[in-house]
Design a protein around this nucleic acid. Structure first.
Lengths: 191, 191
DNA sequence: CGTCTATTTGAATGTACTCAAAAGCGGTGG
DNA sequence: CCACCGCTTTTGAGTACATTCAAATAGACG
């Protein structure tokens, strides 16, 4: 059951007791596919850990074009970090793509936990840093790589996703049109 | 002299005493143009506030292509935030582009200051958040805007820089070749 | 003044996009 | 269980934005 404890213990070792305390501060929820669990414009109050299923975060620019910020499958965290940290209304939607079991940690409880288990502060700090680096790297990638190279990186980052998500969405993530993605794909396969 | 105090007071109000304490923990340094004050691969230990002059941060990808992450002119902070926060070797260079007067705040002193002036924790938290949003926005911009639109955004963000920096560098920031930038510029001027 | 680098200009090319139409696929209701 | 609807994917033709390479020109600095 406790994929989330593994996730944490990889970075900071919790005692049995701390693990129980941690879990007691979380809620496990089940969502059906297509549920929007965070609306852009709302202040984000929670972090989500995916136990099962698949979520995505995306923003919508003027034109009605969706841009996928990130996917989160089993073992990933997802949130609108900017909104969560700043208490300001965010720009991201978070949507469930496959029926999901999600562990919800409210910001409030997270901060309480820092008190009781200071190690967790380290854990979440590292989580935030990783987000920062990933973001920075993705920025650089979009500046310097071709669509094909970006697709390769996507496959490395999310090895299981190519089979699981509509390729329209992958196209959005690597930032090409669905049409172009389709052509690129068949070009790659022909090799 | 105290541009940096203005910068802080815009977000959290410091008493006269706190201001003096803050300044006592900083060092003011003068650098000549072309000095590299942070090497990629090093662990970044400081935050820099620009009093005068102009700096830039950039990374170098395999191909010897420079990508400019950010500029910092009078009143801006600059650092390799990832490296600073994580204590890991960073990927960014920071270079002085015009002779500069820079206020250096070491991470160590920054943390001491959190103790004595808790308000500063709030200030730096907001600084980090802004960095995060800016990064996220720039990512989205590179995905959805044309070179011309990115150039417009650059001009809004750094109103004085178009006159000050070699246009090669602006081209790098908005992520086009110098040749294309030149053509785009004359196209814009012809309107 | 000469050298080195930055900028401009031009031609050819490539990568990715738009628009349009056809084919495939999945779910729902009869 | 099949038929139909809506959405995703494929394919093609034409186009646009941006790149590469090459060469000429302009500027900056010692």
């Amino acid at each position: 059951m406790e994929r989330i404890l593994d996730n944490i213990n990889k970075i900071v070792a919790l005692t049995e007791e701390e693990q129980q305390l941690f879990l007691s501060k979380t809620t496990t929820l089940h969502f059906k596919a297509k549920t929007i669990i965070l609306q852009a414009g709302m202040v984000c109050k929670d972090s989500y850990f995916v136990n099962k299923g698949l979520l995505r975060s995306f923003s919508i620019s003027d034109n009605i074009v969706e841009h996928i910020m990130s996917f989160a499958c089993e073992g990933w965290w997802i949130s609108d970090l900017y909104s969560l940290l700043s208490n300001n209304p965010g720009t991201l939607f978070i949507e469930v793509m496959e029926d999901a079991e999600v562990i919800v940690l409210s910001k409030e409880n997270q901060e309480q936990l820092y008190h009781d288990i200071p190690k967790l502060e380290r854990f979440f700090r590292i989580l935030t840093e990783n987000y920062l680096v990933a973001n920075q790297e993705r920025l650089m990638d979009n500046l310097s790589l071709t669509a094909e190279e970006r697709f390769e990186k996507f496959n490395k980052k999310y090895p299981t996703l190519f089979q699981r998500v509509p390729q329209k969405q992958i196209a959005s993530y690597i930032s090409v049109t669905p049409e172009f993605f389709s052509k690129m794909k068949s070009r790659i396969l022909r090799k």
